[in-house]
Structures are given as C-alpha cells and as structure tokens.
Amino acid sequence: MACSKCLGITGVSHTFGKTKALQDVSLDVAEGRFVALLGVNGAGKTTLFSLITRLYDNISGSIEVCGHDVRREAGPALAQLGVVFQSRSLDMSLTVRQNIRYHGALHGIGRREALKRGDKALERVGLLDRADAKVATLSGGQIRRAEIARALLHDPKLLLLDEATVGLDVQSRRDVVSTVRNLVTNQNVGVLWATHLFDEVEPADDVVVLHKGSVLAKGLASDIAGGRTLSDAFLLLTGVSETALAS
C-alpha cells in the first residue's frame, strides 16, 4: 500500500509535569523525502519520537502515519513504521540474525520469512557477512546499520532515526547517512532524521528546526539557509551560541 503522506503531525504539545516539552508542533514527511529534524539536545526531538512511536500518548493534536492516527489506530500506524532509536536497542548477547528474527516475530513475520527478508535487508546495508556475529562484537557504525536493517524488515513506509550517527566515527557516519539516503531514493521510504549535525543535511532536503519544543522554521534546507550556511541560519533562528551547539 502506497501512501503519499507518510507522517502528518498537527498541533502536538506535550508536558512532563510542569515542563513544556513540545508546543504546537506540526510537520509532514512525504513519501520518498528526507526530512531533517534539526535541534540541539533538549529541543524535544526524542519526545516527539516517543509520541510518534506511542511510547507516550499525545494528549493534544494528532499524529498520523500513512493516514492512521497513532492513538485510535495504533496497530496499523505502528505497522508502517520503522524506528532507529537514539540508544542502542539490539540485544547485545544475541547475533544480528537472531535480533532480526525476533524483530520479525514482533511484526508477525514467521521465522523463515524473517530470515529471508533479514538477509536482504542486511545485504542492503552491507552487513550480510556479519549476520551470524554477536552484536557485542560489532563496531558502533555496524550496530547502527544492523538497526537500520532491522527497522526495514517489515517494509515500513516511514523510517524514524533519532540521532542515528551520534558517537560514530566519520566513515561510519558517512556509511549510515548514505545507506538511509539510498533507501529514500530507491525504496521511496519517507525518512524523519533527527540530528544536530548540519553536515548530514543536503540543500534539497526538507528541514524542520525545533527549538525549546517549538517549530521555528520549516522548508527546504537551501531556503532556510538563505545564502548562509545552514548552521549559521540555525544559530540566527535559535539564538544558540556556537559553543552550546558544539557541545
């Protein structure tokens, strides 16, 4: 089933006690688009991801994945969703293949089918030769790519990646970014890529600037940059100091 709008978020707010984590956030991710969600640590990116994945419930506004509201139709919405979380979520004591089989089962995919799909997904991210290696023996970049392969197993229409390249070396970062961009180009997957690293964003990407829980700007990266570098434009918009950005 194709869906032109993979993700539609309208007027979402969220609080933790008295702290407002998100205020009236709206954004869309279209099919085959790479949308960068830019924000410094604490901007509300992870909270937004937790709401999309229904770890938390959105009290106000609406979140739709391929037209399915995550509150009212959680099953069909989550079925169209692949996620790579900020923290590592593979079972380190199991092999990559075992992790993939487990994930397949969580999406109702039987053993044989999961292993077949898993091999295909691992090949796509260039990790098939490490399929039987324990996750604990993989490098940070390889773990991330294995997580991407796992997230793709059930053919999601929307892929969420929360700071997927944090803690990786330059080469691993490049590998992960190019893997995801290939998916956007070749598989028409919609991607929401949360990051605070500007060099991962290309001029033709859609960008949403999130700061202190509010959307400050959205549009094409080149439009938001407006002749400056994207990081300069971001600093101007948010008033964040360069030192704070680096940390």
């Binding site: 994945t53 229904r54 770890l55 079925a79 996620v83 979520s89 969580l106 109702g108």
Partner: peptide, 8 residues
C-alpha cells in the same frame, strides 16, 4: 522500545 513499537 523495540517490544513496545510492535503493532500488536
């Protein structure tokens, strides 16, 4: 989270 994002 892996468990809880299952569609079931």
């Amino acid at each position: 989270r892996t468990l809880l994002v299952s569609p079931y």
